[in-house]
Design a protein around this nucleic acid. Structure first.
Lengths: 336, 336
DNA sequence: CTGTTAGCGCATTCAT
DNA sequence: ATGAATGCGCTAACAG
């Protein structure tokens, strides 16, 4: 690879002139410039981003650590981040923590050591608190994505989970449902906790007895499965707080012979791709994952521009998509 | 950030000793080493990957350019590449060409300028041939992913598209189908072209008249839609060559009131996530996208190790998942 | 308007 | 077993 030295020699100028025509960082006589441009052409010179980054202490790159690259929602966030980054001339360095705190810590440090200009972090479920604390000391700006920790002084992007759950439950209440099953999952994950809180809120403000509701929390998949399979009694609606939980719940409901929505109503957060092409068509609270990625980059870039402004938390609104899976319920009183 | 100089001073050694204990690259007296280790601890020193890369001319990173980060299949490939990269201590730099040749070219050059040690490229549909040619001159190893150009001297990873299509059609032939609609899409994309070829092969070896088959090619979505909507006559099975094409076809079949599989059989390549939870359950040729990503990294690393060995093309097998959407067809003769 | 020069932080060769 | 010194390729003072 040709370096600036060779270009300079060929163009009969100093390397600093080459650098300046390259970066447009000071005036240079048209005649000289064109000699340089020609030399660049001839040598096939291309700037070495590494050396440049080193000298300027700016890599023009950002890091992104996601907790589960396998989930479509996270894939969409990655997509959004990449898109927004390219638009600003930033390169994306990607790492996946696979919901593993140790791997997360290593990923963060790898990216930091590569001197990314900023870091976007979608925390793992069991994120090491010590990591968070140490990250506050970093001078590399950090934006938390999806999983919001309101007590931490970071810029953050999340969805309005609590509110969306309230809206969903309101809708189901209006349709006559009084007894719910919430498949809540691992409530250490802020996103899932917020959804649970929204549920609790909604139940409380409707004046319903919490004891009439079944909330399945935790990471023990088989326990959740068992609970769903053995489901009996009064529940008329199942709500899944995430796509993996929905997949699991749908399997068990099917296994136990329950039809949706004939026997029981069903709704989920995040949802499945192209799901309106298939039956049952699920009522879904759709996360604006792509836009969340875009927003994270925006926060990061703004932070880079003004390092001392106050941290901001952005909540993007989720879309409540009503479909067949919550249609056609008849409250008990109205049945024949 | 502390540098080696500060560590050296604190430990009362030269920076070269610090470097050597860091990299284990020569013997150092235990006593000295421990002073250095302590100093590293105290200063919170972390190696600057940029400076290191510059000095060694090795970034320990690889680049990945995908053509459509939005498609789940590509998301899975990204996931596989990331996983395999991390396992080898490599960092992943990601770019998305969004099926845009110009953006693809820029992405490739951006990554190359960042001196990634190797590059994995899932070409866009209209990839600039000039780009390919210029890439052959690069000394950075390049692996082509998913879209295989057998005449190009690159390491490549693809799926056995042609063969899988033959297997799928064989199955449908055995079930009595004689008249197909293939939604083939943009056959400039090697993957789609191979699937089309497999189809042609299968029809030929079954001794069927190509003129009895309807093949829909091209990028004009509304033309394809129209053809599907206006579908009449003898076709008993529709095959979609990719997920986006399947989505489109399913929409149109539904719009024209055709039931699957009651009125017409349906099968698709690549498929939908969690699709076995929903109706109709689609017969699917599943691409091992994650594994393809892993394989690409493997090829790249091996190429790095032996730069002069002959380029290899790896074809991973696809899984034929038979489901309801191709069940229950009765050949005309057998009908009452 | 242009050239000279000093590092950025590190790995490494050559001394000792 | 350790240190001194060089340079990777570039940008940005500083000097003319």
């Amino acid at each position: 690879m040709a370096t600036m030295v060779e270009v300079a020699r060929l163009a009969q100028v100093s390397i600093s002139t080459v650098s300046h025509v390259l970066n447009g960082t000071r005036n240079v006589e048209p005649e000289t410039r064109s000699r340089v441009v020609d030399a660049i052409e001839k040598t096939g010179y291309r700037q070495d981003a590494l050396a440049r980054a080193m000298r300027r202490s700016r890599t023009e790159s950002i890091g992104l650590v996601v907790s589960d690259a396998g989930e479509p929602a996270f894939a969409d966030m990655v997509h959004g981040v990449e898109d927004a980054a390219v638009e600003r001339g930033l390169t994306l360095v990607l790492a996946n923590s696979a919901e593993n705190p140790d791997r997360e810590r290593r990923a963060v440090h790898t990216l930091l050591d590569r001197r990314v200009d900023g870091l976007i972090l979608a925390c793992a479920a069991e994120s090491d608190p010590a990591l968070m604390v140490s990250l506050r000391e970093e001078k590399t700006p950090i934006v938390l994505l999806d999983r919001v920790f309101s007590d931490l002084p970071f810029d953050q992007v999340g969805a309005d989970n609590r509110d969306s759950m309230r809206r969903l439950i309101s809708h189901l209440l209006a349709a006559g449902h009084r007894n719910f099953v919430l498949v809540a999952g691992d409530v250490r994950v802020p996103t899932l906790r917020e959804r649970l809180e929204g549920f609790t809120d909604a139940i409380a403000s409707a004046g319903l007895a919490p004891s009439d509701q079944l909330v399945l929390t935790g990471t023990d998949e088989s326990a959740i499965r068992a609970a769903l399979r053995g489901l009996r009694g009064s529940a008329t609606a199942v709500v899944a707080a995430s796509t993996p939980l929905a997949a699991l719940a749908l399997e068990e409901l099917r296994a136990s012979g329950r039809g949706i929505p004939a026997d029981i109503a069903f709704a989920t957060f995040d949802g499945f791709n192209h799901s309106d092409l298939f039956e049952p068509r699920l009522t879904t609270v759709r996360q604006p994952a792509f836009d969340m990625g875009v927003a994270a980059v925006r926060l990061l870039v703004e932070r880079l521009a003004s390092p001392d402004s106050r941290p901001r938390i952005v909540r993007l609104q989720q879309q409540l998509e009503l479909r067949d899976s919550t249609e056609g319920f008849r409250p008990r009183e109205a049945r024949e």
